[in-house]
Design a protein around this nucleic acid. Sequence first.
DNA 1: TCGCTTTATCGTATTTTTGCGATGAATTTT
DNA 2: AAAATTCATCGCAAAAATACGATAAAGCGA
Lengths: 108, 108
Amino acid sequence: MPTAKKAAFKAEDQQLAAIARALAHPARIAILRQLMQRQTCICGELVSALPLSQSTVSQHLQVLLEVGLICATVDGPRSCYCLNVHAIRHAGALVARFLEGLEKAPCC
Amino acid sequence: MPTAKKAAFKAEDQQLAAIARALAHPARIAILRQLMQRQTCICGELVSALPLSQSTVSQHLQVLLEVGLICATVDGPRSCYCLNVHAIRHAGALVARFLEGLEKAPCC
DNA sequence: TCGCTTTATCGTATTTTTGCGATGAATTTT
DNA sequence: AAAATTCATCGCAAAAATACGATAAAGCGA
């Protein structure tokens, strides 16, 4: 979206959209699910688990990192990713509050 | 995403991503919020409420329509949109279940 | 030290999204 | 019937997202 017009939308709407955008690709959903299932923080195992190249998976990880849903630590030659439960909780609360509001709306 | 690789992701992941994609723009969040606030099903009032052209707003409405979050009825020369509470509830449940799972995950 | 593994980043190509003006269809109003 | 209103759609341009191979950096093991 054009930077000039971004300010035209409410901050919370932009925040919600940013969260949604981070989740708007099945690969990133799958990554989060993998991190949820394996207690281990994973790295290149994700590449094996996904039908995508290493560089593409790395890019998706960056997207999730930038929005804060996951965090990374360096473990020797490899990178270890894990869920940022705090951020996820915050995002979940935002989304839940929004959707609950919608559900309660009087329909036409 | 390439149609050829779409099948490589779990159906539920694709469904979640599709919902997220529909919400991945502040204009569409704002549209849903407008429909929530005004009990009236709105049409071109949305254009006045948003910093976007009529054709662009119409496009965003189509996106929300296609994913089923809103529904439309024709009222004379104008179109009347309203929230599809049923679909919203379903989407909300899907998202909530996913995020709750993430929150409970054992972190590294 | 010399490879070997692991992973982020770069460069690039392709596709998708976003945005707008113009146009046309449908309907109401005059 | 003519003009005006409302809105979806088309055509197009610009921007962003997606994907991948190649490359480079960093650490491990021989």
